[in-house]
């Protein structure tokens, strides 16, 4: 197959993701409502209790809303990634994944297309949330919004690949709801999304350690730094490593010999 055929397949998968997203309006609304509630209610309630000192990448004292906004952007990506994985379980139960896997293109490429497409779909959702956050005084520099785009794509793919890997072990949709609770909430709370890690270190060494090895922490920090026009080499390295590792795991998990595609 020539290069054009590979592009056609990618655009076909991307278009399907977009169509499914457009058809599921409530998914878009809920993807915004969830972080909005955290920003408008949770952050407002805790801003007095959780003072933030000057930490990178901020050059001055910030409000709690400003601090948690990047974490909430990552939350949009996380939920979207898990939603996409859920659709893979649905596709497998309904059989439509077989159509994807029967394509003459290599399976790793098809899964990569699927990951990229679902990450691209989550980017407008993240920007829509940031547009809302602007009214809550979350106003990063304009250039930050530009740097954010590729970071959102990469982080979306990391989380999507993780979700894809997990979904390959789920036999039924019902089971996936439980897994979401065991994956989404621990990943979110054991990260720097809601509180700086030094605060976690003050309360517990082992919780701090868990937060420090959580890939979601590095996604949050990469988003935070890029949004404020700064580079975080450590986070970028870890996120890139996770991207390669999780994609490899997802491709392995969807190997036909393992029967996951059935």
């Amino acid at each position: 197959m020539n290069i054009s055929a590979w592009w056609q397949a990618f655009f076909g998968i991307l278009k399907r993701e977009l169509l499914r997203f457009v058809h599921q309006r409530t998914r878009f609304i809920s993807s915004l409502v969830r972080p909005f509630i955290w920003l408008a209610v949770f952050a407002a309630g805790f801003r007095a209790a959780l003072g933030i000192s000057i930490i990178e990448p901020y050059d001055t004292y910030i409000t709690y809303q400003v601090y948690i906004a990047p974490g909430l952007v990552a939350m949009v990506l996380l939920f979207n990634a898990m939603q996409s994985s859920l659709s893979m379980v649905y596709d497998r139960e309904m059989g439509s994944m077989r159509v994807l896997l029967m394509s003459p293109l290599p399976r790793w490429y098809l899964l990569l297309c699927k990951l990229t497409a679902s990450a691209l779909v989550s980017i407008p959702q993240a920007y829509a949330f940031l547009a809302i956050a602007w009214w809550f005084d979350v106003q990063p520099p304009a250039i930050g919004y530009l740097w954010l785009a590729p970071v959102l794509l990469v982080c979306g793919m990391v989380l999507g690949a993780l979700g894809l890997f997990i979904s390959s072990f789920i036999k039924q949709l019902e089971n996936f709801a439980g897994v979401m609770n065991f994956v989404i909430f621990p990943m979110f709370f054991l990260s720097s999304a809601l509180y700086p890690l030094w605060r976690m270190l003050e309360s517990s060494d082992w919780l701090y350690w868990l937060c420090s090895v959580n890939p979601f922490t590095f996604c949050v920090e990469l988003i935070r730094f890029s949004l404020y026009n700064q580079w975080n080499g450590e986070a970028a390295t870890v996120v890139t490593g996770c991207l390669i590792g999780f994609i490899a795991l997802a491709v392995w998990a969807f190997d036909p010999q393992r029967g996951a595609s059935r």
Binding site: M1, L19, V99, L100, S103
Partner: peptide
């Protein structure tokens, strides 16, 4: 139509 387009694109067919 969307279903048919999707399948055909997976086989690399042009629009």
């Amino acid at each position: 139509s969307e279903n048919l387009h999707y399948h055909a694109s997976l086989h690399g067919m042009s629009r």
